[in-house]
Design a protein around this nucleic acid. Sequence first.
DNA 1: TGTGGTACTCACCAATTGGTAAGCATTGAA
DNA 2: TTCAATGCTTACCAATTGGTGAGTACCACA
Lengths: 116, 116
Amino acid sequence: MAKHRPYICGIDAAMDVVGGKWKGLILWALHEGRRRTGELRRELPGVSEKMLIQQLRELEADGIVHREVYREVPPRVEYSLTERGVELNDALSPLSAWGQRHMPTIHAQREATSRA
Amino acid sequence: MAKHRPYICGIDAAMDVVGGKWKGLILWALHEGRRRTGELRRELPGVSEKMLIQQLRELEADGIVHREVYREVPPRVEYSLTERGVELNDALSPLSAWGQRHMPTIHAQREATSRA
DNA sequence: TGTGGTACTCACCAATTGGTAAGCATTGAA
DNA sequence: TTCAATGCTTACCAATTGGTGAGTACCACA
């Protein structure tokens, strides 16, 4: 996770919660509804099992996602957004729109500068 | 910086741009107007010179900040937001508000769980 | 008796990131 | 002649993060 220093501002705090390598993507996936662990893994191309679970645990600790275990065999675990998680996702949506808009340019610029 | 893989969604792209350790804070500081290097350093408690400049370079490469050098002695360099940077900052503001709202709880929860 | 499916957990190693401290160039002022 | 101020850059090391692959527990089912 991160350091326990006092936050400098709201951005600082929000970034600390959502800044993990896969957290934005996890949140976005859960936006569409609850998901089993395996479903999430399949929806996030490239995530390792270790990472996925670690990030989910951190989000859970921050009160963003809710983890529900069904005592079945084989085991079933479902993740969903808490109320706070829904709020966070809403707050993320302008950022998402910005990303959509600028994604092609950014990608192209990085390709270009890495060739130089 | 990060990998040159294609982005999965807008959040993915935006996080790639703004996810650096100090970038959110730099953006927030520049929101209030142009800043000299030394001013930024003093406004971000704990940042090292190396990190500050590295993050500024990356933001510049992504077209978020503009760097202007005045040929004086001692040298003067000023950073300001580009149009794209202003847009990004606007998109960040709901996130900032969310952070403000939840910052005390999050901080407290992390303190608690780290004691456990 | 053995295999499959699910959600983890762990140990180990490699890659990335961050911190520290020093150095450089320039020129006006002491 | 030496120093301070400013914005960088570099080398080196430590800490953090991420990937891989194996192992665990459980029970249904063949």
